[in-house]
Design a binder for these strands. Structure first.
Lengths: 338, 338
DNA sequence: CTGTTAGCGCCTTCAT
DNA sequence: ATGAAGGCGCTAACAG
């Protein structure tokens, strides 16, 4: 049924090894031989059997990507970036969703898929920082995100720095009372905590007072929770001239509410989000955001994982991606001076 | 390095075949033998080498899922459903994005990944209906969506029927002038055409006139385009008491605009979308929608593909999933009688 | 109920 | 620059 190297070899009048050499671009093959083999390959419609190669080489050519949920825009876009980066490196990505549930995150570390992949890019959201020992696995792994750190390579965004920069961006636009949406009180690491820290640091640097009334919690970082938080702020009569949404979904929800209530954005209230998801380019007004270096994160993570797969045993590394403030309409106009 | 069946066999004092039988839940194994083998497996930490099994069986245990983009909510949720359905059947899904570009859709049909999968679930969005001959591939395939039909199994949603039902749902709520958002003039098949047909059919059945002024185009089915379309309708002074968004993103965009302009929903204008994506459960007001049977589509498609992989040669089948109207706040209240 | 044999298709020695 | 042999880890087929 399937055409094998043997068939090609017979057809081209060479040995199987020569066919293998041609297929794998081995340099020392005479041009004429190569041509004959190539011709046989084309005429027979031969295609390499990846499974056999994998068995022989003890590799699968696939890497796993375990993330919370594809329906969260940031992760859908991250998956996209990782798949592209992997393609450039000649490997294939096997996606797994954990639903941000602790049990399923643990399962992902030990699922049957692990036998199918050479390594894992793991983005936990539910595992507790105390459980880092679970990350001591016997296959190559690179950690994504800031939920936890362990004795493995880690690629993360500059949460604190970037939040600080986002907040300072609003300050530069003239904002003096900046609300922050998405806080998770009590969290000791994780994005919510880090981004909140960045916000406070910026206030301190700018010499602005911290006002707890300007902090709005939001458990899930969805549009709806962002809208609800904004509504609470407005209904409480909180005076503000800027809003920092800890992610774009929250910021978009807030934007929606401001718009509905007739608050001019950015004239009366400037808004900035975080993640720079695609939707930020389609809102009214366009949403300013922090581009957290998703592409860089994806590339770096894939490269690091491949190095581990190649056998590198250097100390676990930590890479922090560089970010960028993307100023769009929601924070763009000059604001009233105080 | 790796523990093999041989190691387990030696440890348990049985032959390799017996180990294989235990691993594969072959029934005729004595309980005592099974126990001994299992013990050896556990103590050695043995894990089946899937690649070797695949090579032997001539299968990979993976199916491909080629879809436009994960960042489109419907497809993210479809991918989720397919991955779950596949897991229940013991196969793994290899995802590929085509970016809704014709070239990349063609590539997906012939990518190196095809050697890694036993079959393909293919959801084209850019290929032209005339190009059905491209679908004559030499591996098992099941087509998803309504962009085109070919000589292969096909799973689709009841676009016409469901749109008709959505429109009639608004009619039952008392709507008499129902706008439709998302039209693609000139399209001969594809979702936009089919859903538009359902809309017109419903109007005809309800004895309502068709008014071209109530039809709003939207090329990309995003929130932003839905909002823009709604804005155009309102600015043109079009009188309406209902809106049918051809997908939820469009409807959510429209909802946003109505809300901003102070039009009470559903009191003055009732709104319904299509796809029942997760976001519909988080809008203000909650968005009514058509649940197109995503789970059923996923299960059916996976099952059909697996049957083909098993070697079934029955005539190509076409399955239409059953849908459901999900009435939420945006269309729920009784409307003024005329 | 369990063992033996013979590959699946490829790549890595080692020759030539 | 090319060929021959062996085996990656597993399972199908057949014995026993």
């Amino acid at each position: 049924m399937a055409v094998t190297m043997h068939d090609v070899a017979r057809r081209a009048g060479v040995s199987i090894k020569t066919v293998s050499n041609v297929v794998n671009d081995y340099p020392h093959v005479r041009a004429e031989t190569r041509r004959r083999v190539q011709e046989a390959i084309d005429s027979l419609g031969y295609r390499l059997n990846t499974t056999a190669r994998n068995l022989r080489q003890g590799r699968t050519g696939m890497i796993g990507l375990a993330l919370p949920e594809l329906s969260l825009p940031y992760f859908a876009e991250l998956a996209d970036s990782v798949m592209r980066a992997a393609e450039e490196r000649g490997v294939v990505v096997l996606l797994e969703q954990t639903g941000a549930q602790r049990e399923r995150e643990l399962q992902a570390l030990d699922s049957p898929q692990r036998r199918l992949t050479d390594g894992l890019l793991f983005s936990p959201l539910a595992l507790e920082p105390e459980e880092t020992d679970r990350l001591e696995v016997d296959y190559p792994m690179v950690l994504l995100g800031e939920r936890m750190f362990g004795p493995v390579d880690h690629v993360t965004m500059a949460n604190v720095e970037a939040s600080r920069a986002a907040t300072l961006h609003l300050v530069e636009r003239g904002c003096r009372r900046i609300a922050v949406i998405g806080a998770h009180p009590g969290e000791t690491m994780g994005s919510a905590r880090l981004r909140f820290d960045g916000y406070r640091r910026a206030l301190a640097e700018a010499g602005l007072p911290f006002d707890p009334d300007l902090v709005a919690e939001a458990g899930l970082w969805h549009r709806s929770t962002g809208a609800a938080a904004m509504t609470r702020l407005l209904d409480a009569g909180t005076v503000m001239d800027g809003v920092f949404g800890m992610n774009d979904a929250l910021a978009l929800g807030a934007l929606h509410v401001l718009h509905s209530r007739g608050v001019p954005v950015p004239q009366d209230v400037a808004v900035i989000g975080f993640d720079d998801i695609d939707d930020a380019r389609y809102s009214e007004p366009l949403l300013s955001s922090v581009a957290p270096g998703r592409e860089q994160i994806a590339r770096t993570a894939v490269d690091m994982l491949l190095e581990r797969i190649e056998g590198s045993t250097v100390e676990p590394r930590r890479v922090v991606a560089s970010f960028e403030i993307v100023a769009r309409e929601s924070s763009l106009l000059g604001r009233r001076a105080h």
